[in-house]
């Protein structure tokens, strides 16, 4: 059985349990449900929420550099801290936070394999105390975001060049049978279907029942045999709002070691509303 390409980015629940008091390590919970952290979290973990903390509340984008620095300083994260993300829903939002931290150039980011669910199912402690850490002097070092993030024009050029796309939504969203929330168009899209040429690999196929990632061999079978990707392909992953595709981006980049994968965080809520972009329906 082959190893993951970058096994060091994945830590086990046992590793986290051994590093709860390690001053070089900060555990970060990132959830879909904003109340979950407050109901009980890993001792010493801080909350960084996709909606409350990482996203700008006015413009559809991430927070800016000063806001990101303030967030890290307050959470006691220094530039050389090992930041371990975990969360609900098989680490969707943990992967999303990991991706956002990479945009701001944080070096040592890791994911706790299995996320919140595995930690809880193993009977490990969850506490409600909210920790306070001495503030740091964090300085963000944003990377060239075009290496891991795709915008709509990049996606259009990608489609025209017939390059591979991975759509990680459910099969019904992919075929266009299911358009999210017809009667609340402000939360969904005016058009259903997928970006032409995209292959549908629902995110759930990449994880096991217990929330851990599938093995390198299983993942390779999924993305290389089933979806026909080649490791050196330039690849764009998308979903509906960019969280499930962060998980696919993480899997392809770190577990399989593909060098050229971008996450299209505008995803279907942008593409399905754009005027005159190409759309395909059906399987």
């Amino acid at each position: 059985m082959s190893e993951y390409a970058h096994p060091e980015v994945l830590v086990s629940t046992a590793w986290v349990a051994d590093h709860l008091n390690d001053p070089k390590v900060r555990i970060v919970e990132s959830d879909e449900d904003p109340a979950l952290y407050f109901q009980g979290h890993i001792p010493g973990a801080v909350e960084i929420g996709w909606h409350a903390h990482l996203q700008d509340q006015v413009v559809r984008d991430y927070i800016n550099v000063p806001a990101f620095e303030a967030l890290c300083r307050k959470a006691g994260i220094a530039n050389d801290t090992t930041v371990v993300f975990y969360g609900d829903r098989s680490n969707w939002w943990a992967c999303y936070a990991f991706w956002a931290f990479k945009l701001f150039g944080h070096k040592d980011c890791r994911i706790m394999n299995g996320g919140y669910k595995l930690w809880k199912d193993q009977g490990r402690p969850l506490v409600r105390d909210i920790p306070q850490y001495p503030p740091t002097d964090y300085k963000a070092q944003p990377i060239d975001e075009s290496t891991i993030r795709a915008f709509r024009d990049d996606v259009l050029a990608h489609v025209q060049a017939r390059r591979p796309l991975i759509d990680v939504r459910s099969p019904k969203e992919f075929t266009g049978e299911l358009l999210h929330m017809e009667d609340y168009p402000q939360e969904g899209s005016l058009r259903a279907g997928h970006i032409p040429g995209a292959k549908n690999i629902p995110w759930s196929l990449a994880v096991n029942e217990d929330g851990t990632f599938k093995s390198a061999d299983q993942l390779r079978a999924l993305y290389e045999q089933q979806a026909g990707l080649k490791p050196d392909d330039p690849i764009i992953a998308y979903c509906r709002i960019g969280e499930r595709s962060s998980l696919a981006w993480f899997v392809l980049t770190y577990l399989l070691g593909y060098p050229n994968v971008r996450n299209y965080d505008g995803s279907w809520t942008e593409w399905g509303n754009l005027v005159r972009v190409p759309i395909e329906r059906g399987a």
């Binding site: 879909e32 904003p34 909606h51 409350a52 996203q55 939360e187 509906r240 709002i241």
Partner: peptide, 12 residues
């Protein structure tokens, strides 16, 4: 406000 626009549809 706490869930965010994109995750509210299930509650509707």
């Amino acid at each position: 406000e706490i869930l965010g626009m994109q995750r509210i549809s299930g509650l509707y």
